[in-house]
Computed example of a mutant assay.
Amino acid sequence: MFKKSNIVKWLMLTLFIYILLSGSASADDSELNDSESNEISDSITEFANDLSFIAYRGTIPETIDREWENSIADCWLNLNKIGPSYSEFDKSIKSVAASDVIIIELGSAYKGEVDNSRIDAMYQKIENYCEEQEGISDIPVVFMWAQDEEDLPLPDYGPQVFEEVKNEPGFIATRGIMPVITDPSEKVEWTETAGKCIHSFSGDLRPYMKSSGGQLTGFGHNYRGYIFVCFDPESIESVNDSIIDEIYLIIEEHSEQKGVNDVPVVFEWRGESIEDIAVVDGPYPDEADDSNLSGNEEEITGNETTNQMPGFTFIMLVLCLLFLVKSRK
C-alpha cells in the first residue's frame, strides 16, 4: 500500500506534468491561430482535400488586404474577358473563379493528358497575363477538375425557381422571366448561352464592382438556370430599386444581343468572399461554405468554444483529491 505522503507526491507530479503539457499545447494552438500565414495555408488545404484538386502554384502574401482582394478580383475579371474559351492559355481550361486565389477548372476529358509540365505552362501564361494587367507577380492559382455540365443534377427550369429563391437567405429581388426548360440537352444549351451573356456584359459591370468603388461583389450563373448578381451587405443603405434596374438594364441589353429576352436575374447579398464568382455557380464541392453569413457566424462561435483551456475538469478533480488526502492526515 502507498503511504499518504506518496499519494500526494504522485498526484502533485501528475498535476505538474499535465499543466506543463497543457501550457505547451495552448502555446502551440495560439501560435497557429495567430499566424496569418498558417490560416492561409489552411485555406489552400481545403482545396487540396477536395477530390477534384489537381495542383497549386504561386504564393499567397502573408497579409491579405483590400488592395490584394481588389487585384485578385480585377485579374479574374480580365481573365473572364478572354472566356468562355481560354485556348490561348490552354484548351483544357473550362472556367475561372476566384477567392483569395485564382481557381482554374479543367475539363475532365483531359485527365489523361494534364501533367505537371502542362500545369506549369498554363500557370506561366496566367501569371504573365495577370502581371501585365494588374501588376501581380507569382499570383496564387489553384487547379481543379471541373464537374461537367452533363454530371450536374440540373433541376427543371421554370417560374417555380424564382419562388424558391425568394425564401432563401440573402435574397433581394428578381428581374426577368425564368424560362420553362425540362429537356436535359436544352438545359446544357441554356447554361452555355448564359455563360456567353455573362461574358458580354462583364466589362460593363466592372465599374459597379466593389474593387472599383461600387457595390457589387460578384456575378455569375447559377445551376438552377438564372444569372445572379451579388451586392455587398455593407452597402445596404445605397441599394434600391433604381440601382437594381440600372444594372439589370445593362445585363438585359447584352443578353438580347445573344438572343435572350427577359433574361432571368436574381439579386442577392454576399459579403467579402468572391469564392463562387464563376461562369457556373452550382453544387460544386467547394461551394458549401462560401458567403453564407449565418454559417460563418456559427463557425466563429465554434472557434470561441474550442479556445477554452482543455482539461479544466481534470485539474479540478486532482485538486479535490489532494485536498481530501491532506484533510485525512
Results as ranks from 00 to 15, higher is better:
T301F: 06
K196M: 04
E46L: 10
I227M: 13
W10S: 10
Y129F: 15
W10T: 14
K81H: 08
G295C: 04
P310M: 07
V8I: 13
T182D: 15
S327D: 07
E149K: 09
S71N: 10
P233N: 04
N222I: 04
W10L: 11
K9S: 11
G218R: 02
E246N: 09
E237L: 13
D148N: 05
F89W: 05
I139L: 03
H254L: 00
L32C: 08
F143R: 06
N70D: 11
E272M: 12
D281G: 02
I17F: 08
N33D: 12
E237R: 09
M1V: 10
D156M: 07
F16K: 08
F16T: 15
Y86R: 04
M178E: 05
N80H: 10
P264T: 01
N6Q: 13
Y56G: 08
T301R: 10
A25I: 14
D120R: 00
A288V: 10
E131T: 06
E234K: 09
G176Y: 00
K326F: 07
W269S: 05
S327R: 09
E69R: 15
Y157S: 04
D151F: 08
K94A: 13
I300H: 06
S211P: 08
E297N: 10
I103H: 07
V260S: 00
G302F: 10
K94M: 11
I172A: 01
N33G: 05
L77W: 13
I274C: 10
N296T: 15
D286W: 11
D281Y: 09
I277P: 00
S137F: 04
L13M: 12
K4D: 04
G195D: 14
M12P: 01
T313K: 06
F16C: 14
E256S: 02
W269M: 02
Y208D: 07
V229N: 00
E297D: 14
W76G: 05
W269V: 02
M178F: 00
E304D: 14
S211M: 04
T305Q: 13
T217N: 04
F228T: 00
K196I: 03
D148M: 07
V96C: 11
H199Y: 05
E127A: 07
V101Q: 07
W145Q: 02
N116L: 12
S294A: 15
T14Q: 03
L322K: 03
I136S: 02
T14R: 05
I40A: 03
K210R: 12
P184D: 07
E168I: 00
M309E: 12
D289M: 11
M1R: 09
N167K: 11
